[in-house]
Amino acid sequence: MRKLRNFLSALALTALAAGPAVAAAAAPPPANVPVPYPHRVVTLVTHSSPGAGSDVFLRELVRYLQKYIKTTFIVENDEGGSGAKALSRVAGARPDGSMMYAATPTYILTSLLSKPAKTYRDLQPVVNFFTDSEVIYTRTDGPYKTLKDLIDRARASRGRWGAANPASLERQAAEQLRIAAKVNAAVVSHDGGGDLMINVLNGTLDMGVGEIEEIRAQLEAGKVRLLAVFNSQRIPGHPNVPTVKELGYNVVMEKFRGIAGPKGLPPEILKIWDDAALKILNDPEYKQRYLAVSLMANHIPHDKYGAFVEKFAADTSSLLKASGVIK
């Protein structure tokens, strides 16, 4: 039965692929007709708890994805083991597109920091949607107006820099900046973004590194100021904030958000996701929402995504080794 259904949907897909070519000549393409999908229900698994980063990403995504893929999406939170549980659940699922995973650097970090039953290598990266905006911020009534002020201070005496978690990309970025600028700064890791924010606001720290979403409330209230971003280009909504790279320090951090699945997904499933991702990123309504939270669209199709993830893992691994976190 399943085979028959797969066959029929494959047939439908081919028809669909050929369809637009014919239709395009005749009439303007109809406004988004959802692409049929071989499963009535698709489970999207995340390791994050309800309300946390990946969970919010998936739930927002699903709301618009249903316009482009004809199926019902369910978001399930498989917490525990720093993502290892979600990882092994998805890696063991049937590779037919009925279960996918919200991939973020966490699943690579967990694979590198411990020995989970399944690692990031047991999943197939499907398509990337976004890069998060990672920023350097300081308190508005503090002495630092630019990144240069901050670096000068660290050069003259000793800097106090903060990152949310010890095994995080933010900490790696701060350490890399310290090395690139050849300055003396203590990089202090915290118990999460809130803890870090208090210490930036009360002047214990010169600056903090974090996702822009975590500091938005203080940013809009004018309590903190952005000094620079670690992304490869300037971020939406803040065109005046320079990148760390253009200020002369070769440090770039691309915290990605995408979808991965079990190994051996059929090519037609991969294609549906590739296309849907491209369409949804251009959906005007969705675009407005994700630009408002400073997410940068970064569409990486499946044929390039694997190499991207592999490179990301290799880079992270060498950074973790350099800072003594793993051997």
């Binding site: 720093s82 989970p116 003594g324």
Partner: peptide, 20 residues
């Protein structure tokens, strides 16, 4: 679990369940 400052895994014996 994970060392709160350096991020090194302590007494986890490689088990992801003990990371936190």
């Amino acid at each position: 679990g994970t060392d709160p400052i350096s991020g090194v895994s302590r007494f986890t014996f490689g088990s992801p369940d003990l990371l936190e």
